[in-house]
Every structure is written in C-alpha cells, then in structure tokens.
Amino acid sequence: MKRVLQLETRLPLTLGKNRSFSKFDRVMAPGNSSGSESKRKAMALPGAGSDGVLARLGNTVRQSEVFHKGKRAISNTARFSKKIIWSTGKAAWIAGTTFLVVGLPLLIEIDRDAQLAELEGHQASLLGAPSQPPGLAAMK
C-alpha cells in the first residue's frame, strides 16, 4: 500500500514520459489500486503493445523502480551541485576580492620594504659605513 501511495505521488511528474504506467502498476500492486487503474490504462494504451523488443525493453527499464530512483537522484544531484557551484563561486568571489583589497597590498608593501632595507644595507656596506643590520637602520 505504501508503495502505491508513493507511486501516486510521483505520478504527475512521470506521467508525460511513461506512457504505459498501468502495466507497472499491476505488477507492483496487484488489486490494490483497481479504481484508478482503468483510467490509467486508457491513457497508456496507444502504442503499448505495437512496439518491438527494444521498445519493450526500454519501457521496462523506464518503468523500473531503480530507473525512477536514479532519475530523481540525478536531478537532485544536478540541482544541489548547481547550488553548490553557485555558492562556492560566490564565496570564491568574496574571498578573492577580500584578498585583493586587504592581502595583496600588504604583500606588495612588505616585499618593497624588505627590498628597500636590502638596498640600504648594500649601500651602507659600499660606503664603508659600520655595517649595521638593515632593520636597525630602519628604526631610527
């Protein structure tokens, strides 16, 4: 019974794609959903019996529980992954712009300061001044 309920809730989604739903219904839940069965059968009838083996195989595959579960899983994964990609993109954007504003200037300036200190130390040693660590010269 529970399974039938599940099927019925799923029905509006899958009705358009699965034309011969009734067969599956009969197999899965014999005698339980007899009221609505005839209606479904009428809807599913065109083209149900007149196909070849491949089409039948395709139908059975499409009607199987695994197929539905898989399809739902795939669509869920697609939705979630889209969301995740979007939010990671946003996070990356925020982190990147934050780094550009707060981090990058700091790195550049510290590097420049180190270079300047090195240059000063070099010049001091060239001039023959008493050698002094560049850091001390900077402090004054």
Binding site: T97, T98, V101, V102, G103, P105, L106, E109, I110, R112, D113, L116, A117, A138
Partner: peptide, 18 residues
Amino acid sequence: LRQCRLRGKIDSNGTVAA
C-alpha cells in the same frame, strides 16, 4: 613601513576595508 602606512580590516557586517 618606511614608505607607507597600510591599514586593513575585516568586519562582521561583511565589510572589508583597506
């Protein structure tokens, strides 16, 4: 630093400033 002064901050309101 010798050539500059640099200040940066990050705020819990989502504001970043330098």
